[in-house]
Simulated scan of single mutants.
Amino acid sequence: MLRNSPLHPLARFLLNIISPLEGNTLSAVKNTQHFVRIIKEQHVTQQDLLVSFDVTSLFTNVPTNKALDVVKKKLSEDESLEHRTSLSLNAIMEMLNMCINTTYFQLDDEFYQQEFGVAMGPITSTQRYIHGRL
C-alpha cells in the first residue's frame, strides 16, 4: 500500500494483526544466510537435483483471492489472534480485501486501478501495461 494513499493507515493497522503469521512455514526463507543454514542441514544424494529460479514481478503476479484465502486460513488457526485484536475474522478479511483490491495509482494525470496482483511500491512497467483506467 503506497504511502499517503487513503487506505495506508488501515493497511498499517492490519499489518500489526497479520505480521505474526509471517515466516511460520517450513518453506519460509528469511535471507541468503538463512538459506545456507537450511541447505547445509540437507542430505543430498546423487539422484537429487538442486534447481534455482529467478523471480520477476512476484508481487504483481500474486492471485489476490488465493492470497486472501491463505491469510484467512492462517488467521483462523492462530490461537494468539484474540490477543492482538478484538475484531472478528470476517471483519479483518473484509478490511484486507479492501486494502488489497482497492489499489490505484496515477501516471501522467490519469488514474489507474490495478486489476491483478498485489501493489508493490512505485509504478512498475508491468503496472503500466496490464491495468485499466478508472
Rank of each mutant, 00 (worst) to 15 (best):
D108E: 12
E110V: 15
I123D: 02
Y104G: 14
F116I: 07
S125A: 08
F111N: 11
M95R: 05
V118P: 02
M93N: 11
A91M: 11
F111C: 01
D109K: 13
Y112Q: 10
S125Q: 11
Y112T: 05
F111K: 14
M120N: 11
N101S: 09
I92E: 01
G121S: 08
I100K: 00
D109T: 15
F116W: 04
E110D: 13
F111W: 03
D109G: 14
L96V: 12
Q113M: 13
Q114P: 08
A91E: 15
P122E: 00
F116E: 06
N97G: 15
D108A: 14
N90Q: 12
N97F: 08
Q106N: 06
N101G: 09
F111R: 08
F105G: 13
M95E: 05
Y112V: 05
P122K: 02
D109P: 09
V118D: 00
Q113T: 09
F116H: 08
A91Y: 08
E115G: 03
E94Y: 03
P122G: 00
I100P: 00
D108S: 13
E110Q: 15
Q114G: 06
A119K: 02
V118I: 10
C99Q: 02
A91G: 06
Y104S: 14
Y112L: 08
F111I: 12
T103C: 12
D109E: 14
F105W: 11
I92C: 02
T102C: 12
I123Y: 05
E94H: 08
M93Y: 06
G117P: 00
F105T: 09
G121Y: 02
E94R: 08
M98G: 09
C99I: 04
E110S: 14
M120S: 04
I100S: 03
D109S: 11
M120T: 06
G121T: 06
F111E: 11
N101L: 13
Q106L: 14
Q113S: 06
I92L: 03
T102V: 10
F116V: 07
M95A: 13
N97T: 12
T102E: 11
T124R: 02
Y112W: 09
A91R: 13
D109C: 10
I100L: 07
Q113R: 15
I92F: 03
A91K: 14
T124H: 04
I100Y: 03
T102L: 02
D108G: 12
V118C: 04
T102Q: 15
M98C: 14
M120L: 05
I100R: 01
F105Y: 15
Q106E: 12
T124N: 01
C99K: 00
Q113L: 12
M120G: 02
Y104C: 15
L107P: 03
P122M: 03
Y104P: 03
N101E: 10
